[in-house]
């Protein structure tokens, strides 16, 4: 199986171990990740210039369409933005016309799925939905050779994939099930906690660091109260938020560690830790 791998901007420079965990897991599952010359997904420009953010997303999709590949990203912000790009591209005609004109200059071309059901419009997948829909939970279960002990684990869902559901269509935005199903096959025990679907605080880490850390601290304390030993993430930005210098102090104080899902799955599949270390 081949899929266009969209790592996003942050993985290579900031979160190399997350990237290598995704890559080794995919290699183990027999998926070949194709690296295309993707640009930024457009999420950082969302609050500055809508047209830029939509164009960035559509340009990436058009590039994947050119190679006839679907897109898989391990980042929920990238996933959400690619979906948002399609939404705004379909909703706003003025944006669409300008974007088509610029794409055509580069020999790129994009058709949204709604306009052409049989088209080669690439399917946008997050790592989790890719594992669930394209690999399948039964196949994953067969491959698991070293399950974890049933330790209490709190899930960090990641906002941009869940909401707005009308745009992302990822999972139930109030009671998400996909992540839970995928974590449970690794042997960990997923707990219900109140802040599962709330924001990790990363989007304002630069503009208002104090607030960002306060949100994080409340989340971690809440998870600790529920008795969780791990917080499991499946998003680059969430993981960055939990791995920041100050965040590590907060986690240590509450005796919780934040682990990314591909890392957990990788250990279950028998991949040596060193290979996923980045």
């Amino acid at each position: 199986m081949r899929v266009a791998y969209f790592p996003g901007c942050k993985i290579d420079f900031v979160l190399g171990d997350y990237g290598s965990a995704v890559e080794t897991v995919m290699a183990q599952l027999g998926v070949s990740l194709v690296r295309l010359p993707f640009s930024c997904c457009g999420n950082p420009s969302r609050g500055k210039n809508l047209e830029v953010s939509v164009f960035s997303a559509i340009k990436n999709l058009a590039l994947a369409a050119k190679y006839g590949l679907d897109i898989m990203t391990p980042c929920k912000c990238c996933f959400g933005q690619l979906k948002q790009g399609v939404y705004w591209y379909e909703t706003r005609k003025d944006l669409r016309d300008n974007i088509n004109r610029i794409l055509a200059q580069e020999g790129l071309f994009y058709t949204p799925p709604s306009r052409d059901p049989g088209s080669h419009s690439p399917v946008i997948r997050h790592l989790l939905s890719f594992l669930l829909h394209d690999i399948g939970i039964t196949r994953l279960k067969e491959k698991i050779i070293r399950p974890w002990e049933p330790v209490k684990t709190a899930l960090q869902q990641g906002c941009h994939a869940l909401r707005p559901y009308g745009v992302t269509g990822f999972d139930n935005p109030f009671a998400p099930k996909m992540f839970k199903a995928l974590v449970e096959i690794t042997g960990l025990r997923v707990i219900d906690w109140s802040k599962e679907t709330s924001c990790c605080g990363n989007p304002i880490a630069e503009d208002h660091k104090e607030l960002s850390l306060k949100i994080l601290r409340h989340k971690v304390e809440d998870a600790a109260r529920e008795g969780a030993a791990y917080i499991c993430t499946a998003c680059t930005h969430c993981q960055i938020q939990y791995q920041g210098a100050e965040a590590l102090h907060i986690l240590a104080k509450n005796k919780i560690s934040a682990v990314s899902y591909p890392f957990i799955l990788g250990t279950c599949l028998g991949i040596p830790l060193g290979k996923m270390g980045g």
């Binding site: 909401r163 559901y165 935005p173 503009d207 949100i215």
Partner: peptide, 24 residues
């Protein structure tokens, strides 16, 4: 300026207003 863009407001709005999109 401090909106997290988590879209909780927009998802819950009973009147279907695109609150987060407007904030952005």
């Amino acid at each position: 300026w401090h909106c997290l863009t988590c879209y909780a407001c927009q998802e819950l709005c009973p009147q279907g207003i695109r609150v987060a999109d407007i904030l952005l």
